[in-house]
Design a protein around this nucleic acid. Structure first.
Lengths: 140, 140
DNA sequence: CGGTATCCTTGGAGATACTG
DNA sequence: CAGTATCTCCAAGGATACCG
């Protein structure tokens, strides 16, 4: 049944890209990835999502230990932003000392899944890019 | 043959994330996505890749028309960066007036493929995020 | 047409100190 | 423990003008 017509693939891909690049009338008027990158294309958001998704549940300082190089301020800012976007759930436990736990919402989990391919691509082709870069710099 | 064991899925995912987050000893010492985002997580790179991939081949000013809001300078900077990373191929034709065409390299094309899922996610969940944001802002 | 070169502004992000 | 509040600084990026 699943007849694969090789030539239909690029056409379907084209249609998908078309929709992704289509400018939304509502809100910012930007297309989907631009809107996405405006909020999640910063230095930390995606990395934090990967880490929370990996651990399922993480406390603030545990997360800070794992995300190499992040400052306390930026972790707070990033987490608030992710919480605001409905991607991360923040649970506060009224204990002493206070305990706060972060986990992915279902929406956040679905995003993590969508990011997996990109993450794997990044890992697989990291050295290829570094190589291309060295080659380019040498020529010029 | 393809027996799907539901419980093995999260485990495989975990292993994948582990590798994605693993800190590379060579180069910057950052993990794969951090390294990736440092170069491609800016405002324009991914959008430009989508546009070039969609059109197969594009001239400078044609690209500028399509990427809403980009300045001439940023388009140049972005294209140079993508060329340096080996993702985009720049072809100069010695004509008058001069003609320059941009297209994806095989590496760039494979990246586009990896970005498709993310792009589709962005499109599908754009309104959900906007909604979460409004809800969050109302409460606070 | 397809860019450089230069100036200038803004806000992203680190460092530090304080708090419920 | 898990933050907030300031201060500060640097560089990403817009505007503008010029060039092969």
């Amino acid at each position: 049944m699943a007849v694969t017509i090789a030539d239909s693939q690029p056409i379907r891909t084209k249609k998908k890209i078309e929709k992704i690049l289509e400018e939304k009338k509502s809100g910012t008027g930007l297309c989907a990835i631009q809107d996405f990158l405006d909020h999640l294309g910063d230095r930390w958001s995606m990395v934090v999502i990967f880490h929370i998704g990996y651990a399922n549940k993480l406390r603030f300082n545990e997360l800070k230990k794992r995300v190499t190089g992040i400052s306390q301020r930026m972790l707070t800012v990033t987490l608030r932003s992710l919480e605001r976007d409905g991607l991360v759930i923040r649970s506060i436990f009224a204990e002493i000392p206070p305990r706060v736990e972060y986990e992915l919402s279902p929406l956040g989990a679905s995003l993590l899944e969508a990011m997996m391919r990109l993450g794997e691509w990044a890992r697989e082709h990291q050295s290829e890019i570094e190589q291309a870069r060295r080659k380019f710099d040498k020529k010029k």
